[in-house]
Design a protein around this nucleic acid. Sequence first.
DNA 1: CCATAAATTGCGTATATACACCTATTCTTG
DNA 2: CAAGAATAGGTGTATATACGCAATTTATGG
Lengths: 152, 152
Amino acid sequence: MAKKALSMLSKSQEAAATCVCFNLRKASRAVTQLYDGILQETGVRATQTPILIASYLAGEVTVSHLADTLVMDRTTLTRNLKPLEDQGLITVKTGNDRRTKAIALTSQGKAVLTRVLPLWEKAQKQIVGGLGNDRFKSLLAELSAAVSVARS
Amino acid sequence: MAKKALSMLSKSQEAAATCVCFNLRKASRAVTQLYDGILQETGVRATQTPILIASYLAGEVTVSHLADTLVMDRTTLTRNLKPLEDQGLITVKTGNDRRTKAIALTSQGKAVLTRVLPLWEKAQKQIVGGLGNDRFKSLLAELSAAVSVARS
DNA sequence: CCATAAATTGCGTATATACACCTATTCTTG
DNA sequence: CAAGAATAGGTGTATATACGCAATTTATGG
């Protein structure tokens, strides 16, 4: 009994301090709030920026393909596209293969992206500057590795 | 014109590849799904585990204090407490200072935590094993630094 | 050519996140 | 002690996330 209770206490302390999932989510919350604050004047959120960028880079793309690119659940992306479509930043139309939807950035979306990118850079520089370039590069590499491990 | 378009393209490519916010969120999604899959049989989610653990370690704690501990928005925590209370894993009662709420883990919550912790360890070992101990420790340190920078 | 499998997407449901605003309680001070 | 300040918490609203299931369309094997 005493042993089990002790193990529960020490394991809880270890989990609180070292859990990769918790610490990733914690950092995500903090960093997302920083980006959101800086991007606020554009009306675009930190979470929406990658979608706009990927749409811009892909030209015209299906929901599933875009979800793969963003390493995002397909149904999550579908929900996330809605406010962007409502704001006129993207269009969603039926593709030639009528099972698919073709996502494309509108000219308004491109205009907004032009305003977003300098602010993104500002936020990014605050983080990179605070971390230092070495830790920044190390962080990116480890996040990439974590994704590979988690999905393998 | 050509210059601006080029800058937009290259900046978009840079953002897609290096954005700290996006890469953190991406890794959070992937890692959370791994933990969720392993924890599934307990009925407790990866996001709920830290709340149970912090409640267990704190003994009895107010919403705001728990939110500080978890580096989580107070109102987010309030919403997250609801399903845990519904499942009977925690109790929420008015504190002596009647402005406050006292959060406490129930005996059922402790029993569930006993089942959760070994599975948490299993998930954690998959990630740590995949990353290697050096990269794991480095990742934790950089996430901690990122939180400090983002909140400063 | 048709029956069936595969591919693509949407929707129902539930939880996670956080900002703005509101209420209730306690503290502070004249 | 009463009025304003400070503190603790909840609610409305909007977006983010993802699992399971259903619907539609395309590809494929006999």
